[in-house]
């Protein structure tokens, strides 16, 4: 008996596979439609609503939102009290991003270049493990660590280094009564909670730099510092930028940490939280929320112009 050249379709799955083979875009379309709907309607839609709200204003007597186009609300952002909030948030975000980048680089470099097998698993576990526990638990734990009766004060006393701790706390502006009520403490907590978001993209970027490229640089006479500046850093920059987008925007939008740690100075996230809640000033809350978006756009434009994405 001769064997057929075409096998019989066994059922629905065979016919469906055939359909997808004839029309490859159909499968792609089916897979992409739900997330695109979600992104398009829920995400971009709410962003548009936010943008729209920010151009409304609030009636000062009735406290009601006036749905008429005005730039009055944005003008309010420039009042000293509000401007301070933005400036403070921006500085803290920049400091946290820088701190994370400096701390993350050696870890990411080690993981990308040297960690193999078991040590790679230890690396991923070590970086991800803190993300598994509740964010609030971590922040409160840090509050206790940094408190005046906390472990750091105790350790400083035990090692007779209280002088150093007091000198740090005596620094103007960033110091304070204790670490948990100072900008330094807030910086430490922010850096801790966002560090994994810097390490992972950095490690991914460094992993893509072939060892032979570092060897070529040395072979041609470059010192370690020159290799770092002219080869490693430019090639890792997309990863650093990706990481800094996380740390920068997460810090700018956070409203929990500034409430729990620090000197209760206002940050953008807290301002938005208060304005849309107790104050009921949705337009100003929306205008505040637009600020981080604008800052990120400016940041990305500058990064692109500096050639951060050339190696992509």
């Amino acid at each position: 008996m001769s064997r057929p050249a075409i096998l019989p379709a066994r059922g629905f799955a065979d016919r469906l596979t055939g359909l997808f083979w004839r029309r490859p875009r159909l499968l792609l379309g089916l897979m992409l439609t739900p997330p695109l709907l979600w992104l398009g309607v829920v995400y971009l839609g709410s962003l548009a609503a936010l943008l729209l709200q920010s151009f409304y204003s609030i009636d000062e007597f009735s406290g009601m939102v006036v749905p008429e186009f005005t730039l009055k609300t944005y003008a309010e952002l420039l009042r000293p009290a509000n401007y301070d909030v933005i400036f403070r948030t921006l500085l803290m975000s920049a400091a946290v991003t820088l701190g994370c980048a400096v701390l993350a680089f050696p870890i990411a470099y080690y993981a990308a270049r040297f960690a193999r097998g078991r040590w790679k698993a230890v690396f991923y576990l070590g970086v991800m493990l803190p993300l598994w526990s509740s964010y609030l638990v971590k922040v409160y734990a840090w509050k206790l660590i940094l408190a005046k009766e906390g472990i750091i004060t105790w350790a400083a006393e035990a090692t007779h280094t209280s002088g150093i701790l007091n000198a740090v706390l005596a620094l103007p502006v960033i110091g304070g009564n204790s670490l948990s009520t100072s900008y330094i403490g807030m910086f430490l907590v922010f850096t801790y909670v966002w560090l994994p978001y810097m390490i992972l993209p950095m490690q991914a970027a460094l992993e893509r730099v072939p060892t032979s490229m570092l060897e070529a640089s040395q072979d041609l006479g470059a010192t370690r510092a020159q290799t770092f500046r002219t080869v490693i850093l430019p090639l890792a920059l997309p990863g650093v930028i990706a990481g800094s987008i996380f740390t920068f925007s997460l810090t700018m939008g956070d409203y929990i940490i500034p409430q729990i740690v620090g000197n209760s100075a206002n940050f953008i996230g807290m301002a938005v939280y208060q304005l849309q809640g107790t104050a009921g000033n949705i337009p100003l809350a929306a205008a505040f929320a637009v600020v981080p978006i604008l800052i990120m756009l400016v940041y990305l434009t500058l990064a692109k112009r500096a050639g951060a994405f050339d190696a992509l």
């Binding site: 072939p210 032979s212 490229m213 060897e215 070529a216 640089s217 040395q218 072979d219 041609l220 006479g221 470059a222 010192t223 002219t230 080869v231 430019p234 090639l235 050639g307 050339d310 190696a311």
Partner: peptide, 20 residues
């Protein structure tokens, strides 16, 4: 003597040209 001080240069198998 470390590589960067040796008066010897290499053509790498994957060329290792700097992409940026």
């Amino acid at each position: 003597t470390p590589p960067h001080l040796r008066n010897v240069n290499t053509v790498f198998q994957d060329y290792a040209l700097f992409p940026h």
